[in-house]
């Protein structure tokens, strides 16, 4: 009995381990994921540090719901409004997908600002993380552009006139302004060309840029690590004062959690 059990067990293990080994040997992906999951972070990371991953979650919600919406949305002035109505009122759970995309956009922007505020509060943009701050600002700019281009797509009055004004405001910029607004409109009037351009930017150009920037952003977070809260009694990288050294000698097990009183 014992022998058959262990044999089955070995076979089961083979089923799981073999493909993983196969992939690992040829790519190193498994090692990379293991490194990502089990890398050390400062002992005093806390709930503030979840704002980045929360923002990523909101972005993933936008990607998934956006892809589903693109199945049913028709980017032409004659059909866009009708397809939005069909999505919202007729398709099974269409309202949920559109609602999540619409409100997810606001949640994404709010979380971006909160995340940025957290990084500012912690002074986490300082050496050696300056570059990641720049990437973050670029992500914020692209996210706002995503909001601007997506706003036109329902092709209702609110969408149309907000875009008329938005494009006109672009035109006030010195030198490049009129060219940018002509390009965005795809001609003199807002019409089929405008909708195509906004649709393509909203679901190809800007999301592509965002995915690339977010990947780099996360790569740098992993490479450089996150900062301890500035109010931590014993922050990672803190000065080696006598107090800290003494405390480290005494405190066992290692302190964890919120890093002590503010």
């Amino acid at each position: 009995m014992a022998r058959t059990k262990s044999k089955r067990r070995r076979q089961l293990e083979q089923v799981v381990v073999y493909p993983l080994d196969w992939v690992e040997e040829r790519s190193g992906f498994v090692g990379a994921i293991r490194y990502f999951l089990f890398r050390k972070v400062p002992h005093d990371t806390n709930w503030f540090h979840t704002l980045g991953s929360a923002t990523l979650t909101a972005f993933i919600v936008q990607l998934v719901t956006g892809v589903i919406l693109a199945f049913y949305y028709k980017p032409s002035p004659n059909e866009a409004y009708d397809s939005i109505q069909v999505i919202t009122n007729d398709l099974t759970l269409g309202w949920l997908v559109r609602g999540m995309h619409r409100w997810g956009a606001s949640v994404f922007i709010i979380l971006l600002f909160l995340h940025m505020g957290r990084v500012f509060l912690f002074g986490a943009y300082k050496y050696p993380r300056e570059l990641n701050w720049l990437l973050g600002v670029l992500i914020l700019v692209l996210a706002m552009l995503e909001g601007f281009t997506g706003y036109l797509l329902p092709w209702d009055q609110t969408a149309y006139w907000a875009t008329v004004v938005g494009i006109n405001l672009n035109a006030t910029a010195p030198f490049a302004g009129p060219f940018i607004s002509d390009f965005l409109r795809g001609g003199q009037e807002i019409g089929a060309n405008t909708l195509s351009i906004f649709y393509s930017m909203h679901m190809l150009l800007i999301p592509g840029g965002l995915i690339g920037l977010i990947t780099l952003h996360i790569y740098l977070v992993i490479r450089l690590g996150v900062t301890s809260p500035p109010w931590s009694q014993d922050p990672a990288g803190g000065e080696r004062t006598e107090v800290v050294t003494a405390k480290r000698g005494l405190v066992e097990p290692r302190p964890r959690g919120n890093g002590g009183p503010p």
Binding site: F36, K40, P42, P235, R248
Partner: peptide, 9 residues
């Protein structure tokens, strides 16, 4: 510090 006293992600 992270290496010696951090916690796994």
């Amino acid at each position: 510090d992270v290496e010696t006293r951090g916690k796994p992600f």
